[in-house]
Design a protein around this nucleic acid. Structure first.
Lengths: 336, 336
DNA sequence: GAAACCACTGAAAAGGATTACAGGAAGCTT
DNA sequence: AAGCTTCCTGTAATCCTTTTCAGTGGTTTC
């Protein structure tokens, strides 16, 4: 049996309340405090967090639910959230939903059982819909994927604007047949698609969007299919990091060169983004700010449960690299 | 106040013991079971895990301590560990130590307070040393970084052999001046360095190793320094994924081409490894197997606390890509 | 028909902390 | 010197479950 607060109290010749107060910074005379601290050191006592949580009725735990921690954006996000949490003496429970609504539901139940203080969640579209009905016993901050501002706080990239920026950029370097490749599970893709539609329309460009599972393999397959048609696009915008990699792979497979034959761009900046092919043009998400803002929204919500929901949109930053470098002699200009 | 087991019992007209037994699959008559289940559904009751853990004296929680979840190997590892854990009804507490012994110590204390069932840990060299003294109240499985088989189970790549494979491969494509770049915090780097020494020696090659912080920036700086000297190496082996990216960056900066001027190779295969530069030659670690084996060792250890410690070594797989493609006309052969 | 057994069920005792409450000693005020 | 604070300290209740133990009623066995 592990040493409990009772053993420490006995050894220090004080009551358990006093030992507890030494931990909780309650009023304890210097003399007793020292005796207790000695007893703690001697016994190697460690407070039992389950007991503490049960009695004090707060778990000091927040949940983090994402599709897959291996997706670079979520990797970075989780690191920020964990750091912020530990800094405030909180613990994080991480769940990978794999974009499955069933797993989301299962993990939501787990969150309830853990009595989490709050949840930071990048929901699927299905999960988002269900969330409207369910009312959960803890505050939820949606992250990365928000939907319209409704019952819950959220912090997302300004996806629409970011995609408009990408389309405009491709247009500016002389591309006119730009296809969009989007994920088929998240609201993020919906917003980015909206931006794509709006930008192509306002520039008088053709508009053609494809929705696939948000991973490299599906993206590669789809692009291979699209590019097997006679009228080849000269630009591709991919809605995520991994999908962009799929596009690059497809280009290799088709022996098309970037940016000469096709200019490509996407989302999320990583260490390797500048090293893939001629360097990938991307919208960099301020993932640190997103994570910290999510935590801030969560803590604010805990203080003011009734305050109106807030939706925070952060802007992305366009990083231009070789994959969208201007190519002279393209399109109308005759090649020498 | 949330609904507790008492409320459910009352509503179902049974004792709390019966409700508890419904969850624990104890003996309950079909009739009562149904009444209880109805009451659970009606009240939306969720068992309180803190109370359960306190009473039943097992936390169903395992700790996972790694340097940084953003390091690709650890990202993948954490995903495997989480999956396996949830499959067995366990939860995972993830900690990022940033290679700091202080943070390791701090998180070890946290693990004790959480009463974790066991810990999977990629320790720093300092942490490994301290571990010999400390005796922790839960089993520890070392992963990725093992040191000599001592008091604890471990599962690691056969780092020495893997590095020998890399050196031999570079030699086989005609490189003779191969430098090694290793991390300065982990035992992994020590083992890889050993392999490097042994391979270069047995092949009669020069041997020159550099130890830096295990990230892209430090690696890039070091390589820039090394390559500013008159006698330029024609091969580089980097001890991790991120360091290899640093090497690639340095090559770009120096305007050296790969593999013509310098062949480079490293560790860990990622989605983007084949897309960086001409494709990166790497040793792929069986990270899925490593994670699952770690869990297996942990569970075995729980069953047999006194059994002798086991050290499992798994072999890596060499994936040859463009960064070490044979170049005709190199070295001795005259260029036409 | 008594004994043994079986399958359930409930009352009550943990499990290890926090915290409301009350008490005691010392220091101040009047 | 009585009365009031102030500052510590200890007692005991409480958080929500699981689990032991002691039935209870019914069935089988001899």
């Amino acid at each position: 049996m592990a040493v409990s607060i009772k053993d420490v109290a006995q050894r220090a010749g004080v009551s358990v309340a006093t030992v507890s107060r030494v931990f909780g910074n309650g009023p304890v005379s210097p003399e007793l405090r020292e005796r207790v601290e000695k007893a703690i050191a001697a016994t190697g006592y460690r407070p039992n967090l389950s007991a503490r949580r049960l009695r004090s009725q707060h778990s000091q735990t927040i949940g983090l639910m994402v599709a897959d921690i291996r997706s670079p954006f979520f990797t970075a996000l989780s690191r920020v959230v964990e750091d912020e949490a530990y800094r405030s003496g909180m613990r994080v429970i991480l769940c990978n939903t794999d974009e499955s609504a069933d797993r989301e539901a299962m993990y939501l139940r787990l969150m309830e059982e853990e009595r989490v203080t709050g949840l930071i969640w990048a929901p699927t579209r299905g999960g988002l819909e269900r969330l409207a009905d369910d009312d959960l016993p803890f505050p939820v901050v949606l992250v990365d994927r928000g939907g319209p501002v409704g019952h819950h706080d959220s912090v997302v990239l300004d996806n629409q604007q970011a995609t408009i920026t990408l389309v405009r950029h491709l247009h500016a370097i002389g591309r006119s047949h730009i296809v969009g490749l989007f994920g088929n599970t998240s609201s993020t893709a919906v917003d980015r698609h909206l931006g794509y539609i709006s930008a192509t329309a306002s520039l008088g460009l053709s508009s053609e969007a494809f929705f696939v599972a948000p991973n490299a393999e599906a993206a590669e397959r789809e692009i291979l299919k699209v590019f097997s048609r006679p009228d080849r696009p000269d630009g591709v915008i991919a809605s995520s990091n991994l999908m962009l990699l799929g596009v690059v792979k497809a280009m290799r497979r088709l022996q098309l060169s970037t940016p000469e034959d096709v200019a490509i761009a996407g989302f999320d900046n990583e260490t390797w983004s500048e090293l893939v092919g001629p360097g990938l043009t991307v919208i960099e998400q301020p993932v640190g700010d997103i994570g910290r803002m999510a935590m801030t929204l969560l803590f604010d919500r805990l203080k003011a449960p009734k305050a109106p929901a807030r939706k925070v949109m952060l802007s992305g930053r366009l990083i231009v690299r070789g994959s969208t470098a201007p190519v002279t002699g393209l399109v109308d200009e005759p090649v020498e």
